[in-house]
C-alpha cells in the first residue's frame, strides 16, 4: 500500500487533470454577466475566467499546507519523532511551488478583472504572507544548520497560529468570495463539475508530490543518521 501511494495518487491526478482540461476548455461555458438591460456587465471575463479552475485549486492546497505543516510540527515537538518533521517539511516544500502558482495565476486573473497585476487587496495580501512564511521556513531548513528542524517547526507553528490574525487584519475584501455561498455556488452548471474535478485532481497531485518528497527527505535523513552512527562507531573515517 505504501509503495502504491505515489503511483496511485499520481495516476488519479493525471486522469483527473486530463478530464478536467476537457471539461474546462470544451464543456464549460464562457463566463459573462448581464445587466438588467441585457448589456454585458463588468464581471464578464470570457476566456480569462478559465484560470479560476487552476488558481483556486492551488490556493486550497496552499492554505491546507499551512495547517498540515503546523500540526505536524506540533506533533514533532511533542513526540520528537522526526517522521512528523519530514511530513511538515515536505508539505511546505510542495506548498511553496503551489503558492507560486497561486500568486502568478492570481496576477493573470487580476489584470483583466481589476486592470492591475497586483493590488493590495486582502486575499492577495493573505496569500502572499502565507507564502512568505513558507519560503522563510524553507530558508531556515536550508541554512539553520543542526537546529534547523526545531527552528523551522517553531516557525510553522507560529505561522499557523498567526493565520487568524492575518485573516482578521486583512478584513473584508473585494475578492470573489469563496466558500459555499460564494463564487462556487454561483458557477454555471457546466462550470461546477469542472471546478470540483480540478480541485480533486490537484489535491491528488499535491498528495503525490508530498508523499514523494516525504520519502526522499526521510531517505536523506536516515542516510545522515546512519552516517553519524557509523562515524560514532568508528566504522567510517
Amino acid at each position: 500500500m505504501k509503495r502504491l501511494a505515489v503511483p496511485l495518487t499520481a495516476a488519479l491526478a493525471a486522469i483527473g487533470m486530463t478530464v478536467s482540461l476537457w471539461l474546462i476548455f470544451v464543456n464549460a461555458p464562457l463566463q459573462w454577466g448581464k445587466n438588467s438591460n441585457d448589456t454585458l456587465n463588468m464581471s464578464s471575463l470570457f476566456f480569462n475566467q478559465k484560470i479560476f479552475y487552476f488558481h483556486v485549486a492551488h490556493a486550497f492546497m496552499l492554505f491546507a499546507s499551512v495547517f498540515v505543516a503546523g500540526t505536524c510540527s506540533i506533533a514533532f515537538l511533542k513526540t520528537r519523532n522526526a517522521r512528523w518533521d519530514d511530513i511538515a517539511c515536505a508539505a511546505v516544500n510542495v506548498a511553496v511551488l503551489f503558492g507560486a502558482v497561486v500568486l502568478v495565476t492570481g496576477s493573470i486573473w487580476a489584470k483583466p478583472a481589476w486592470g492591475t497585476w497586483w493590488n493590495w487587496e486582502p486575499r492577495l495580501t493573505m496569500s502572499l504572507l502565507l507564502w512568505l512564511i513558507l519560503v522563510g521556513y524553507t530558508l531556515v531548513r536550508q541554512f539553520a544548520g543542526a537546529s534547523a528542524d526545531r527552528v523551522a517547526a517553531g516557525m510553522a507553528i507560529f505561522g499557523m497560529v498567526g493565520v487568524p490574525f492575518i485573516y482578521k487584519m486583512v478584513g473584508s475584501d473585494s475578492h470573489p468570495a469563496s466558500g459555499a455561498n460564494g463564487v462556487v455556488a454561483t458557477l454555471g452548471p457546466g462550470m461546477k463539475g469542472a471546478f470540483w474535478l480540478s480541485v480533486v485532481s490537484f489535491m491528488c497531485w499535491f498528495i503525490a508530490l508530498v508523499v514523494f518528497r516525504v520519502q526522499s527527505i526521510r531517505a536523506a535523513r536516515e542516510l545522515r543518521e546512519l552516517r553519524e552512527a557509523a562515524l560514532d562507531a568508528g566504522v567510517l573515517e
Binding site: 530558508l139 539553520a144 498567526g162
Partner: peptide
C-alpha cells in the same frame, strides 16, 4: 527565535527572515 537560533552560524540573517513574515500582523 533568537534563543533557538543561538548556535546557528547565519542567525543574523535568519532572525529577520523568520520574524518579519510572522510579525506582519
Amino acid at each position: 527565535f533568537a534563543a533557538t537560533l543561538l548556535k546557528v552560524r547565519s542567525r543574523d540573517v535568519l532572525l529577520p527572515v523568520i520574524l518579519y513574515p510572522l510579525l506582519v500582523p
